[in-house]
Design a protein around this nucleic acid. Structure first.
Lengths: 250, 250
DNA sequence: CGACGCTTTGACACAACTCAACAACCGTGG
DNA sequence: CCACGGTTGTTGAGTTGTGTCAAAGCGTCG
């Protein structure tokens, strides 16, 4: 990994502006890339492991498998996102992670994480912030699956994805590459693949959103937001140096 | 608050056995109880606040309100659970918290949290563990709402609740008091209240589970687990002193 | 070329929702 | 004391959103 700003560092930078030292530390954390082939599983639900990963390139998919064979996709990690950070302290991983496209990840051991937290309190705070934001996305996802109908849910999903990709610098306004299949969408949205297809057609015919040939286009952002009740992600540096986290210094 | 082991300390103790000092610190954290009346809202979605709460007594309900008036209940906090820990670093609270029964909470400021994390690394690790477990519950909830039918979902919910209450010492095996209404259940399970009623009747008639008069009884634990695919919560001290968290010491 | 993965469409079934009504229970106030 | 409105639970009838099954179209890749 050449010493350039990683997606991960960029993401944390959204919370608090990082110093040269801290960027250095983050770079050290993300050495030795691991290549994961499209479709292969990096972490299997039930694994007893004590490491997290940072996704460097490609799209991922963390999902929960049900005894009856069904699965619920929790989120599609994008470059810069953490994988398995939640279950790092749990005895066993509560979910699986597999690669949607060919992907590159870097591994981070628990002990390493905790050491960095102790040595670089600002990084610790920023990671906690990122983890909080990711959890908020899961909560929003839960609300979507529980209380929105298929069309609203799908619209909401694409708006959120659009925002996440823009924050990661991977989407120009209104359009983005999206390697997801309708089956993956279905498992994420709690629908059947066939119904996803119908919903996508409806959104297309209503001139709101097109998802074809691995490319998604938002035609009517306003109408989609109105329809789905989507609220934009918080953006921009949120915390200035010298604020709260100072208490965590030694 | 008299100096006795709080529910919160008990919960953390499940992860790592706490020292006298640490128990003292936790006790100091939970002074000045705030009484919250049944039905009233302590935190409103969108609030810009920077404090978390610990639920000391009673049942809570954290939910997300949708623009169309619907709501999705994320979880029902029980004594010892944290409230708003996730959104403490976010600019605005992403969910509301209200009291299902008359309840008592204690408030913890962000600055306080971060200081404790720095001074008592074991507490920090234990809190992170608890937060991870809570997030795992939300993920499981998402899987439930997305991929289980009404009966499975309801069965799963009650098994989980039973386990959580047992860990908190609030349920004898197979039976527990449960102040939830069918409307609350509906908003948690992503169903209509009427359908919840029908599902409860079915579970009752099949001899699996009774929920009447604010009291829930698990009649056939095995069949319910089979039906819903529920997996028991991890239990017992998970981490010994001198393990990982030592890296976080000063 | 055939096989495979993904999308698209139609017909039908069923789970869950809505609407409507009523019963039981509560605390409150006359 | 009873009457009252409000909350919660219960049930039925009809509707609808979404799932299931089946089949065909279309790329791509070996």
């Amino acid at each position: 990994m050449p010493r350039e700003i990683s997606h991960f560092a960029q993401k944390l930078n959204n919370f608090i502006l990082l110093s040269e030292d801290e960027l250095e530390c983050l770079a050290d954390l993300q050495t030795t890339p691991i290549h994961v082939q499209r479709g292969s599983e990096l972490v299997h639900q039930g694994d007893t492991k004590q490491a997290a990963y940072i996704l460097q390139a490609g799209w991922g998919c963390s999902s929960k498998l049900l005894p009856d064979g069904g699965r619920q996709i929790i989120t599609f990690p994008l470059p810069g996102d953490c994988i398995g950070l939640r279950s790092v302290l749990l005895r066993t991983s509560d979910h699986s992670f597999s690669a949607v496209t060919d992907a590159i990840v870097t591994r981070v051991e628990v002990s390493r994480i905790l050491r960095v937290f102790a040595d670089y309190p600002y990084i610790g705070a920023a990671v906690l912030w990122a983890a909080s934001r990711d959890e908020a996305l899961i909560v929003e996802h839960l609300a979507s699956v529980g209380r929105r109908n298929a069309v609203e849910r799908t619209a909401h999903f694409f708006l959120e994805l659009h925002d996440r990709l823009r924050l990661a610098g991977l989407a120009s306004s209104g359009e983005f590459d999206c390697p997801l299949t309708q089956y993956l969408l279905a498992d994420a949205l709690g629908l059947s693949a066939i119904h996803v297809n119908r919903v996508l057609r409806e959104l297309r015919e209503r001139g709101l959103l097109t998802f074809q040939d691995r490319k998604a286009t938002i035609h009517d952002h306003v109408a989609l937001r109105q329809l789905s009740g989507y609220e934009a992600l918080e953006e921009g540096p949120l915390m200035a140096r010298g604020m709260e986290p100072q208490g965590t210094g030694r």
